[in-house]
């Protein structure tokens, strides 16, 4: 039939990808809500952890989309309170890591999460270049990425006075090896 060819193949539901790729079962959740009760950031999230799990359980493309576009997945601190209290042992932080990288891959990142990602990227750039985290480099790069130029300007002089801020980053000898680790890991994420 002619109409058949026009129907787009249904995307694989996220819950199946989660099972296949990171071996976590969202279907185990029976909505007791302990995760949301213990989560330090439930109050800041658009969807609480149990709500995210429910959306994933439904498995409809619109629900999956809602999850990937949520701000809550970016606020998760990986504190693991939800996981440690879950009677069904759902490793929710592990699922959150997966959802974050999936949101980036599918370009569905919540607009307010851009700053959080900019911070993570600046952090990784510092490691890629020097092998370690340079706090000065991190903050400079983050400010340039987000134009939050005045943020924390009061903190830096005080840190410097207390000998807590290294102006020149320590560059490890194995920088080339680190750069190759980055290159291979990035290529792999890209090919997924």
């Amino acid at each position: 039939m002619e109409t058949k060819s026009k129907i787009e193949p249904l995307a694989q539901p996220l819950k199946e990808k989660i099972l296949n790729e990171i071996n976590e079962q969202v279907m185990k959740c029976y909505q007791c809500g302990k995760c949301a009760a213990g989560c330090p950031l439930s109050g800041e999230m658009d969807y609480t952890p149990n709500q995210i799990l429910r959306l994933l359980q439904i498995g409809e493309p619109t629900c999956d989309d809602e999850v990937l576009r949520s701000y809550g997945i970016w606020l998760c601190l990986t504190c693991d309170t939800c996981h440690s209290r879950c009677p069904q042992e759902v490793d929710f932080p592990h699922i959150m890591d997966f959802l974050r990288s999936e949101a980036i891959k599918r370009k569905k990142v919540h607009p307010k999460a851009k700053e959080i990602i900019a911070f993570h990227r600046s952090f990784l750039e510092s490691i890629e270049k020097t092998g370690r985290l340079s706090e000065v480099g991190l903050i400079a790069s983050y400010k340039l990425k987000t134009f939050n130029l005045l943020q924390d300007v009061d903190l830096a002089p005080k840190m410097f006075a207390k000998g807590k801020l290294e102006i020149f980053p320590h560059r490890i000898k194995g920088r080339q090896a680190i750069a190759r680790i980055f290159e291979k890991a990035m290529k792999e994420a890209h090919n997924d």
Partner: peptide, 16 residues
């Protein structure tokens, strides 16, 4: 030694 990758690495790239 090098940086452990912290939250940034596991948030963005599981291999890293």
């Amino acid at each position: 030694w090098n940086c452990c990758g912290a939250t940034a690495a596991h948030s963005l790239n599981s291999t890293l």
